[in-house]
Design a protein around this nucleic acid. Structure first.
Length: 295
DNA sequence: TAGCCGTGGCA
DNA sequence: TTGCCAAGGCT
């Protein structure tokens, strides 16, 4: 029997065994979780840590257990319930996503990656995550954790190269077990490994199930030598901070917030206007009689 | 396509 | 304290 290029994935075997033994018990991984529950979790987890998502996710699904139930309320209710998860446009997109599912998919979350990609707020990562985790479709799921795990374990680099969709998907595909069940587990397990062991800072290599085959470890942990990502802009004093202050006010209010009230939120009037205009353009705020409200 | 978009915890 | 980081997506 000839050797084939797509190796039989000793990595996946070890990572899956570790995952089955020690994965965090997250509710959206429970067998009974609905596809909609998976969708909601994926929206909330976009750039927001698990610990902050957990309570919000449970409350959200109790209130809106189906896409149709969310689609039936104004989008502003979704934005208000989003509370302080951050990036409130995600709440708007999740609501729009629910409307589209209700109107164009009979209220059923699609299983097809291309149909998922067509939905608001669903990009390359989320589409594959929903297909894989909600429906068991054998597709590679690549997020920042997976990219880091593969960069280290397979490529022997401290950090992944800048994202390149085709290459990243191919790299994950090369490790993905042929069996659909094992593939689904590995998609979750690789992410979990990156989230709790193979972390960006201070990886816990002594707890790693694939330390023995890790290329980065074998190479002596060489430092990253590629291009640096642009540093995140300072938040304090930024437009983002001002937008956050305005949104907090709109969420708390049940009658229109006036210009005078907004003026008390921030000393720089020009910046305040710029932030408000941005929120209006994004559809996160709307002009009402005498002020502004959630949509 | 690079910049933008919230919020909070941690080192 | 300051900067980095966190299951991305949109324009």
């Amino acid at each position: 029997m000839p050797e084939i290029a797509t190796a039989p994935a000793p990595v996946a075997g070890a990572v899956n065994a570790w995952f089955r033994k020690s994965a965090r018990p997250l509710p959206w991984r429970e067998p009974g979780c609905s596809p909609w529950g998976i969708v909601v979790s994926e929206f909330m987890l976009q750039q927001t840590p698990v610990a902050r998502v957990l309570p919000q996710w449970q409350a959200w699904l109790e209130r809106w257990p189906t896409p149709a139930s969310l689609a039936a309320v104004p989008s502003g209710e979704a934005v208000r319930a989003w509370n302080r998860l951050g990036y409130p446009r995600r709440a708007l997109w999740l609501h729009a996503c629910a409307v589209t599912i209700a109107e164009q998919h009979g209220g059923v979350v699609p299983a097809d990656v291309d149909e998922l990609l067509a939905l608001p707020g669903i990009g390359p990562y989320t589409a594959r995550a929903v297909a894989a985790f909600a429906y068991g479709i054998r597709v590679p799921v690549v997020d920042t954790n997976v990219r880091r795990v593969l960069a280290r374990a397979i490529d022997g680099r401290a950090e992944p190269a800048p994202p390149a969709a085709a290459r990243d998907l191919a790299a994950m595909s090369a490790q993905l077990p042929a069996d659909a069940t094992e593939a689904r587990v590995f998609n979750a397990a690789a992410m979990e490994l990156g989230a709790v062991v193979c972390t960006a800072r201070a990886p816990r290599c002594d707890e790693c199930p694939i330390a023995a085959v890790c290329a980065w470890r074998a190479a002596g942990y060489p430092a990253y030598d590629g291009p640096r990502r642009a540093a995140q802009k300072k938040y304090e004093g930024s437009d983002r901070q001002v937008r956050g202050l305005i949104m907090r006010e709109l969420r708390a209010a049940h009658i229109p917030v006036t210009d005078a009230e907004l003026a008390g939120l921030w000393p720089d009037a020009a910046q305040l206007t710029r932030a408000l205009d941005g929120l209006l353009a994004d559809g996160l705020a709307v002009a009402a009689d005498g002020g502004y409200t959630l949509p």
